[in-house]
Design a binder for these strands. Sequence first.
DNA 1: GATGAATGAGGGTTCATTCAT
DNA 2: GATGAATGAACCCTCATTCAT
Lengths: 187, 187, 187, 187
Amino acid sequence: MNKEDKIYEAALSLFTTKGFHGTPTSAIAKTAGVANGTLFHYFKTKEELINSLYIKLKNELVVESVDGVEKIDSLKLKLEFLWSKSIHWTMTNPKKMFFIQQYMYSPYITSSTQEEVDKIKEVYVDLIKNGISKGEIKDVPIDLIYIIASQQLFGMTQYLVMNPEKYHDSEFMNTAFNLFYDIIKKV
Amino acid sequence: MNKEDKIYEAALSLFTTKGFHGTPTSAIAKTAGVANGTLFHYFKTKEELINSLYIKLKNELVVESVDGVEKIDSLKLKLEFLWSKSIHWTMTNPKKMFFIQQYMYSPYITSSTQEEVDKIKEVYVDLIKNGISKGEIKDVPIDLIYIIASQQLFGMTQYLVMNPEKYHDSEFMNTAFNLFYDIIKKV
Amino acid sequence: MNKEDKIYEAALSLFTTKGFHGTPTSAIAKTAGVANGTLFHYFKTKEELINSLYIKLKNELVVESVDGVEKIDSLKLKLEFLWSKSIHWTMTNPKKMFFIQQYMYSPYITSSTQEEVDKIKEVYVDLIKNGISKGEIKDVPIDLIYIIASQQLFGMTQYLVMNPEKYHDSEFMNTAFNLFYDIIKKV
Amino acid sequence: MNKEDKIYEAALSLFTTKGFHGTPTSAIAKTAGVANGTLFHYFKTKEELINSLYIKLKNELVVESVDGVEKIDSLKLKLEFLWSKSIHWTMTNPKKMFFIQQYMYSPYITSSTQEEVDKIKEVYVDLIKNGISKGEIKDVPIDLIYIIASQQLFGMTQYLVMNPEKYHDSEFMNTAFNLFYDIIKKV
DNA sequence: GATGAATGAGGGTTCATTCAT
DNA sequence: GATGAATGAACCCTCATTCAT
């Protein structure tokens, strides 16, 4: 792994377990196995590091979830595809999802980062808009749908991380998806 | 107001706007109008302060939401009562709710605090159990229901804080509650 | 015991084990079982407390050692009497002797305290002068004799505190005294 | 001089004149001409600094006193050599000896430091053992001899620091050594 | 690019002392 | 006399960041 990625990895691990201010840059450098100053070659400041990491992970989540969705026709199946891919990513990378949840509303994440991340979510917003215009999704403000859907997804991932055996229980996972889909689908 | 409460108030305001480590204890003391050392007379450490504040607010939310619910019979109405009281508390104390959401998963909140707070949620868990046994709520793991319901409520409060005019739109609020209730009610 | 003495006792115990600056006045008050402010009724400052304690203990050592010496005639026996009484006081009050040794050269003990304590030692100085003029003690500067004799005594008490069984071995104690007396006696 | 040594030098000077707690680390750094943080680059804590300094000085005293002693045959001459070299070191470095005496029994010096320093004294202990077995030194517990001999030496240095002109009075110095040697030599 | 010694501002916390009760 | 809440100056130490190598 190159040094930049080693730094990302160390930062992810330490920020989630010790918090932003509980993690000295020296500890990140040590864990990453690089010199103290090296960190500042790749990231101008500690804040730049956490913001870059945040964007990187959000992107990763979306990119991995979205890959292949265009081949599916039905809206419900598209949503199920995205939902299960997102869940899969979380189960494979629990620390990453935990990081996202933890820093989502933190003051370390700048508004410019928020804006950049907001662009990524367009993929989902378009899908919802489409669903509403086709009458498959409730005609409720898109922001609200988006917020509630993501919160719901986060809730589910939290539950699965605490009860990982359920992840392989396909009956449960089916119920779980419906718990998600029922909120937004038009009756 | 006594000095302890003044410190709580200042801490709430500063922690939500500047973050935990962005808030020097000196700033809290100054805002509270007390001497620096006084803060440490009431709270052994800065971490003890944020944990105490967290417990206090969680308690306040539950106590104020629950007050009066015992007079209601129907489960759905009970839930609506709790839901709207919770929303009401949030709209009246947006900073407090924001604080709770922001620090919920932060490493500053110790596991012993989490345990103490978990006791409070028993009120809700009992209600859900009851609903399940009466066949009014989906027979899904209680933990899951609880997580998803609270996440959903948080999502809604976020939306309302950003769009406060909707709070007085009773049609919207009705839809909103159903968005919540539909997830958990047995079909 | 009255409060002043309780404070002295607590201070002695804490100053020897934790040091002057390692002992908050609050800890002294707590150990003494009095209120924080009470300490400052009896001693204007923390420094006044340690100085008073030092003087008190030095006095106690001399007073208890000297009591009865006037009835003895021979110089050697007078010295043996003082020596064994001093050793006895140390074995009975090891903490007190340890305190004296520890703070003897510390900057917390003011020069005015040193002067006051120096007056006490006149008893011994007179004895030495007398011995020199009678040709029983080496004709060496009195200051030197005094310093060396006390250091030697301190050395012996240290050894006895570490090997308390020797204290009851009268043969050893006899040798020990001669180790002391041989230095100063004229050959 | 390198920065570490500058810090040692400043610490020695300030600790002896102002005491441990009377010396802020900031004052040490300023006197040493380095930045505040630099001190903590070399010594994790203020306590580590004083302990390192203590060990360093004790070592220095022994190393400088012992150098050359192996070329001497007679026990008495060996002792005289060590004694006068120790006195010489003290007269050349009075602050250093004062520091050692002042902190010897202080609670800042940890027991692990004491243990490390105790190893150094083996050189002297071997000499004493040897002397006892050859019948030249009194057959008294070695610990006792060691304690008393060092206390006596300390006493002498104290006297000489207060009366430095005596240091060049060879008759006095001769008497002084005998005052030391008489205690331990077998009659 | 990589290093790590050096920096110094900043912050949490302590604690001797005061004073109203 | 006795209390203990309140004070705020002072201090140890941390740590993001720089820069000469």
